[in-house]
Write a protein that binds this DNA or RNA. Sequence first.
RNA 1: GGAGAGGUGGCCGAGUGGUCGAAGGCGCAUGAUUGGAAUUCAUGUAUACGGUAACCCCGUAUCGAGGGUUCGAAUCCCUCCCUCUCCGCCA
Length: 425
Amino acid sequence: MLDKKLLRGDIEAVRVNLARRGFVLDTDAYRALEEQRKAIQVRVEELRNERNVKSKGIGAAKATGEDIQPLLDAVQSLGEALKSADTELGAVQAQLGELQMGLPNLLHDSVPDGADEAGNLEIRTWGEPTALAFTPRDHADLGAALGQMDFAAAAKLTGARFTVMQADLARLQRALIQFMLNLHTEAHGYTEVYAPYIVNGDSLRGTGQLPKFGEDLFALQGDQEYYLIPTAEVPVTNLVRDEIIDAQRLPLKFVAHTPCFRSEAGSHGQDTRGLIRQHQFEKVELVQIVQPEHSYPALEELTGHAETVLQKLGLPYRVITLCAGDIGFGAAKTYDLEVWIPSQDRYREISSCSNYQDYQARRMAARWRNPHTGKPELVHTLNGSGVAAGRALVAVMENYQQEDGSIRIPEVLRPYMNNQEVISV
RNA sequence: GGAGAGGUGGCCGAGUGGUCGAAGGCGCAUGAUUGGAAUUCAUGUAUACGGUAACCCCGUAUCGAGGGUUCGAAUCCCUCCCUCUCCGCCA
């Protein structure tokens, strides 16, 4: 959510910034609604004030034993006027709130222009695209040949876009997760979090998935507004919802491994093969809650933490800055890490690291007490994959494949694999 | 699932129809005391929105959430959520 004061004070600046995303803000409509709101609100508050004053008068009169009937008569008509004005106000505020919740975040100045992913900017690369002396096979092939990755079985159990893994591959994914969690907790100073995989609507509104992107979520049936989490970002970031955090506790750095559930609505036909795009996948997520002035250094740091994972795994990657047209709804700035995928002869996203500034914090009412002002102020929130385990598995399988279809296990994972060096039939 | 007790400010905790944004305490801030500190004393200390350019002032709202009764609700009624205790069940 954006600062309402900014929307009132300089909506033109907001319009210009959001236009970079291709988002059209109808400033006239917003202003009109806002003026309406103000007028009605003032009226409601005046009516309420009048009622309060008169009611107090009744209380005082009663205490002195006066006849209160004339006073009661005088206040009679107020109730109805107040009720209808209040209803009107509620309707306008609901409209305004919907509009406000539907506005994406303002972009940071450093975000490059661009309409779509073609406008993303490469910042740096690490390693060289893996050179294989033979034609690389994709991970689905490799996994099937090993008899350890079975999409048909998953289709039987559930449907499309799920997988069943067994034996060494199943263990390799677990090794990746363990490795990442240990790295972030031991070397990068994150606190490991175990959190619910089901969250309520307030949490999703807090981080920005709702109200606009409900289509991407799996909603549970029942009386409660429950959803499967699309990312650990949701439960972990919402830890600070409605909290006022002591300054000395910041920054909060959390790491969590969770499965992620995404309906992938609107992506039919994309990446239908293999593990790249699934309804359920494993991810290790990094979340930081920081003081506002620290959030951009924190974004660099957090991105570096995700990069360390890939470096230690020996996976070639590049870092890109998402352009205005490709960046996510709530993010002010995002770096994507893209890992080399030999079978596709290109880089594919494996991590996305974003600074949300105060956008999520405002929705969540997540604040810290600024010792200089003594007042609660909004924190800044960041998150990034550190990294997606399913895609990391893909990258390891494909980059470490050998001509005979066996897969070498990266050194750093061997301790988690009983020192096994190769996965083969 | 059954029975009971509760959800009040940064925290703890009073408050059963009006003068309650809410006693008291803790914490915090400022000042006094002190060589300095601790102790002690004094004063201050919620958030959001609106009137405003304004952190002064004024108004409105907020005592788990939503509805209702009433001139007036933290307080009464209804529904829901959550926490705790006991029983049952259970990985």
